[in-house]
Nucleic acid binder design. Sequence first.
RNA 1: CGGGGCGUGGCGCAGUUUGGUAGCGCGGGUGCUUUGGGAGCACUAGGUCGCAGGUUCGAAUCCUGUCGCCCCGACCA
Length: 603
Amino acid sequence: MRVSRLMLVTLRDSPADAEIISHKLLIRGGFIKRVSGGIYAYMPLMWRVLKKITAIVQEEMDAKGALQTLLPQLHPSELWIKSGRWKGYTAGEGIMFHLKDRQGKEIGLGPTHEEVITKITGEMLNSYKQLPINIYQIQTKFRDEIRPRFGLMRSREFIMKDAYSFHSCEKDLKQTYEEMNDAYKRIFSRSGLKTVAVDADSGAIGGAASQEFMVTAEAGEDLLLISSDGKYAANQEKAISIPQEAIPLKHEKSFILETPNQKTIEDLCTKNKFNPSQIVKVLLFLAILENGEKQPILISIRGDQELNEVKLANVLGTFLEQPILDIRPITKDQSDAEKLSDIPFGYIGPDLKDSVLNNTNSWNKNFIRLADYTASKLENFICGSNAINKHRCSIDWNELGGIPKVSDLRKAIAGDKSIHDSTKIIRECRGIEVGHIFQLGQKYSRALNSNFTNEKGLLESFWMGCYGIGISRMAQAAIEQNHDEEGIKWPISIAPFEIIVIIANIQNELQKKLGEAVYKKLLDYGLDVLLDDRDERAGVKFKDSDLIGIPWRLVIGRDASSGKVEIRKRSRKESEVLEVEAAIEKISEDIFSERKLFERKPL
RNA sequence: CGGGGCGUGGCGCAGUUUGGUAGCGCGGGUGCUUUGGGAGCACUAGGUCGCAGGUUCGAAUCCUGUCGCCCCGACCA
């Protein structure tokens, strides 16, 4: 390909709406073009990158015996109603685009394909003899993100590889899950990405075990917690750890302490010389349930700890045996709107009476009371008295009428001890989620009545797994990990081209001739070559080649008359001047050996 | 959804406070010079100032509405 024909439009200035480096570089290099909020066109250079990533993904999936298909993007609502996800995905802050067709039938634009695939396989597969099956597609997905941002990192239309496996038993599912785990490690390492696999919350997809593959990068939206020996790694949403010990409170007879205007843990501690770990703080939340009920929740947690809302939603969902559509703190405005004048914000105790809810007409009239184990373990503590400007000191759970239902609700944080080995300390870093694998179990197959006949001749629901990779996100994450002040440094396995040949001065016949010859020769070698044949000053071409991040550069310039050219690797500072033939040999050898490094390894 | 900010040529911005008929840099075109790290000079094209109303002799500027985009938040009791 010739740069003169490439539709290469690079920008000197960063666009005002780009925040992170990878987004800026993608725009400046002309890789993507914004069409609307969270919606981008992939321009020719980008499409080459995406095709290279896709090829790696396909090779590794195919090697595991997975089958590629292409599923529809328009999904009838009844499938999603059956699986129980229609409401959660469309109502409120649901992320599913949906529309009505001319018959008035509701249709959703696929954000993920469990429903569709489960329906199809349920109809096509009937016997355990046909299992296991692992089926995948590489397809555009649609998600109406609450807040699209960072270019392709969180866009509303994006390319994803999603695979779904079907098994006759859980053991078989676990085996495929492990194989996918292996395939994913190969995919990311072949793509030149440094990733870490972490335990994850399975979120809206549901199911049992799940693992995320994270590209470690400062710009990542997820917080990861990793033990100092690397043996434990989890997304903060899911992470469990051993918190710091509480500092014991002096034992004495319980009493009421006047605490005027001390509504925060911080105020309470500085004014009375308490330690936050000696306090039980009580949080008031409102959960919106799938059946439409609005349920007030009272959560007790140790004062120095923070609540993990994902854990809270999971615990609550299990307890109530239905999905939680939304859960968030109750504000003063909300409680006023419900005419609940008696809630002593800042002074709430675990034993706040249900009677404060008497006036409400849209909420449930009793609290669900939960406690994090850091709070339940305290034997002697301080807490709100349910009366303004008063706290109770040296109180215990008996005096409060017992301990609420206990769960792990706290956020694990850096500095905690690891659960697998308490001598190992947890540290944190940020990550970009590029892959996620789940053991779904029978959640979808049961809901959608997707069955097979097992060895005993009995009808059984499929055991399912699902496995996603954000293809377009991967491309951007690669930049986040591989760039410098000048631009992108693509890993060679996913670079749009492997080498760029720059003719420094196209007016110079000698250079031009030599450049064309070198270009042809490299093409004949089977390399992905780009020839910069533009009538531009050399500096412009150097800047552009650095910006778009081609791994090798070969310059035909002032030494052309003596048959010499300059070569440089994008990842290095130094360049080298060699005879043409030697340069071609060196580069092709290097690229071939790099290709070997990144090519499929035998199982 | 709440708060804040911004919409002026392809991109980055000034002009808006104090109304007087639109400007700078980059980019584009032509010519000459230059030619290994985003060249210089000259000429040139390109904008109903997001959109719709209103106020006014006159609106990018003031008012109302609307659309779009960006950031923060939607947890710290």
